[in-house]
Amino acid sequence: MSRQSRHVQEYGTTAIIWMAATMVVIPFLWLIGDLLWNGWTHLSWSFVFSAPQNAGREGGIGPILMSTMLIVGVCMGVAVPMGLGTALFLSEYTRHDHVLGRLIRGSLDVLAGVPSIVFGLFGNALFCQALGLGFSILSGGLTLACMVLPILIRTAEESFRAISREQRLSAAALGLSQPTTIRTILLPAAMPGLLVGGTLGLGRAFAETAALIFTSGYVDRMPESLMDSGRSLAVHIYDLAMNVAGGNPNAFATALVLVGLLLIINLFSSWIATRWTSLNQLPA
């Protein structure tokens, strides 16, 4: 191969890779820019905290924000302990080729690919009707929990598996019991990975529309208990944009709040992850 053609090849590859990377950034910036352009002027503290009026064209999103927090709270409250438990079971309590482990992994992979509207119908049938919870924040949160469990478990399992065997052997050599090993060695070491999984799960929960419209419902009143129906931010955006004439400005402002919330969660969790790592890397 001549020297020149090697140069062309090298520059060509570099250019293509740079172009690909730039094109990934453009939609993100475009989206944020569009939201800011259309939503910023409608955004204010009173918008964030007051109740919607005239089908959401006027007023704010206070009760909707509250419902969203409760739905996501129920979801993570159920999904995190169950997810951690299952991930520990898969990585610490069974061999990689254990029958039950393989069954769980297989079903999780299928669940992770199920469209969210199917979770919505499932949640409506199981939680709202069969268990009699009706349209409620609890039904919505539990449905979301089923949806984010696969993400949580698979990321958590991977982070536990990434911990070197020597650490477990050292713990065993010191005579530490399995629960102590998990608490003092494995959980801290896996924490950055667990945070990434948790953030992905939180993001999916916050942004969900289809799974919630038939479970937590459409009511935009301030929720008084977990048995009340409550509209989530994403459902509100969908309704304003697709069903309410003149709802666009508030749809943009609501979307801005949602994206802002997700950005804050992302930044916060990566901040914790870096702090955690630096705290746990003691000088030798």
Binding site: G85, T86, L88, Y93, Q178, P179
Partner: peptide, 14 residues
């Protein structure tokens, strides 16, 4: 013993 009991305990707590 603790090996077998722990995931079950976690599940029951949930």
């Amino acid at each position: 013993m603790p090996r077998a009991r722990n995931p079950a305990t976690v599940f029951l707590i949930c």
